[in-house]
Amino acid sequence: MKLMPLSLAVAATLLVTSASAQQYTFKVGAAYINPNATSSDITGRMAIKPPGFPSAVNKDVDANIQLEVQPQTAFIFSIARSFGDNWEGELFLGFPPEHDVKMRMNNERVKTLASLDPTAIPAPYAAAGVTAGTVVGAKHIASYDGKVVAKLKQFAPTAFINYKFGTPQSTWRPYVGVGVNFTHVKPEPTRDGETFYNDGKVRTKVSDSWGLALQVGMSYHLDDTWLISAGYATAQVRNKIRINTDNADSVHRASYKFNPSIWMLTVGRKF
């Protein structure tokens, strides 16, 4: 892990060091980011108080409940500096996109319990220990399947070392790059996220991530100054999540391990 910050520093240094055929290229454009991110099962204890129910329902989190980050578009820009005819260092930045986070509930038992009437529980279920509180809790949980329970902003600067095929005079220049990504996530619960617990302020912490990044693309040089680029990038991103409320029993944990798909279209100018 200590090598990751060093790699980012080395890649950034390449943007400002002296070399032959030095040239800056500034790109600006848009990216479509598909996080491909569904968390592991949420684990821990939960204390929810469904609206209208007299007391909180304290229980372990049911299996097969995850958080799914939704795709988003973002404004991006990069600064690159060549060192030689075919190599360059590039640093990608942008305005942090805001992703919706949906709850996904794939537990058939919860769905079955949610279909019951809490005032008339069938004998087989009652014999198995199913109570009115169990049914009300299941109805409450099932009703949040597919709802946006949080918003998250991600700040993800990424440094690449790129190899550009062809010559500086080529009109079309394919390129490939390898680098390092840093991802910082700032989550905020939505109104649905707060009312899901109905237990005071929801606090969410997400760990930072360092990981390998790759990109591939093509640049079309309109002239000696302007170019248009289309590319695809991905990175290794791993985050740990901790969710808690004012109730000490409501502590949830999960993790993400995903490789986002990032499609980019930019316009660039060489200096």
Results as ranks from 00 to 15, higher is better:
residue 196 F to N: 12
residue 124 P to C: 08
residue 134 T to F: 03
residue 237 V to C: 01
residue 3 L to S: 14
residue 207 S to H: 06
residue 237 V to F: 00
residue 248 A to K: 14
residue 180 V to P: 02
residue 177 G to R: 10
residue 75 F to C: 00
residue 217 G to L: 02
residue 243 I to S: 15
residue 133 G to A: 14
residue 206 V to K: 06
residue 168 P to T: 06
residue 7 S to F: 13
residue 15 L to F: 10
residue 5 P to V: 07
residue 70 Q to D: 12
residue 97 P to Y: 09
residue 115 S to K: 00
residue 250 S to P: 10
residue 84 G to Y: 03
residue 8 L to E: 11
residue 172 W to I: 15
residue 89 G to E: 00
residue 53 F to S: 09
residue 262 I to P: 00
residue 265 L to M: 02
residue 91 L to H: 07
residue 91 L to C: 08
residue 207 S to N: 05
residue 134 T to V: 12
residue 136 V to C: 03
residue 181 N to P: 05
residue 22 Q to G: 15
residue 158 T to F: 02
residue 132 A to T: 13
residue 165 F to E: 07
residue 78 S to A: 05
residue 43 T to S: 13
residue 208 D to N: 15
residue 81 R to H: 15
residue 155 F to M: 14
residue 270 K to P: 02
residue 154 Q to I: 12
residue 71 P to S: 13
residue 134 T to S: 12
residue 52 G to Q: 11
residue 206 V to W: 07
residue 65 I to W: 02
residue 24 Y to P: 00
residue 271 F to G: 04
residue 68 E to P: 04
residue 262 I to W: 00
residue 268 G to T: 06
residue 216 V to D: 06
residue 141 I to N: 09
residue 72 Q to C: 01
residue 4 M to K: 12
residue 40 S to M: 06
residue 37 A to L: 01
residue 43 T to G: 06
residue 97 P to I: 08
residue 78 S to C: 06
residue 86 N to T: 01
residue 86 N to I: 02
residue 223 D to K: 03
residue 112 T to W: 01
residue 110 V to H: 06
residue 266 T to E: 00
residue 74 A to G: 02
residue 194 E to V: 13
residue 169 Q to H: 12
residue 78 S to T: 05
residue 230 A to C: 01
residue 243 I to L: 15
residue 33 I to M: 07
residue 7 S to Y: 07
residue 229 S to H: 00
residue 125 Y to L: 01
residue 140 H to W: 15
residue 23 Q to F: 02
residue 22 Q to E: 15
residue 1 M to I: 11
residue 134 T to I: 10
residue 245 T to E: 11
residue 165 F to D: 05
residue 180 V to R: 04
residue 28 V to M: 09
residue 108 E to R: 13
residue 127 A to T: 09
residue 61 V to E: 12
residue 72 Q to A: 11
residue 126 A to Q: 11
residue 227 L to N: 11
residue 222 L to E: 05
residue 141 I to H: 01
residue 183 T to E: 09
residue 54 P to Y: 07
residue 77 F to H: 04
residue 30 A to Q: 10
residue 94 G to K: 04
residue 150 A to C: 10
residue 234 T to W: 07
residue 200 G to V: 03
residue 245 T to V: 06
residue 162 N to C: 04
residue 93 L to I: 09
residue 250 S to V: 03
residue 145 D to Y: 09
residue 48 I to P: 11
residue 14 L to G: 15
residue 197 Y to C: 03
residue 3 L to P: 05
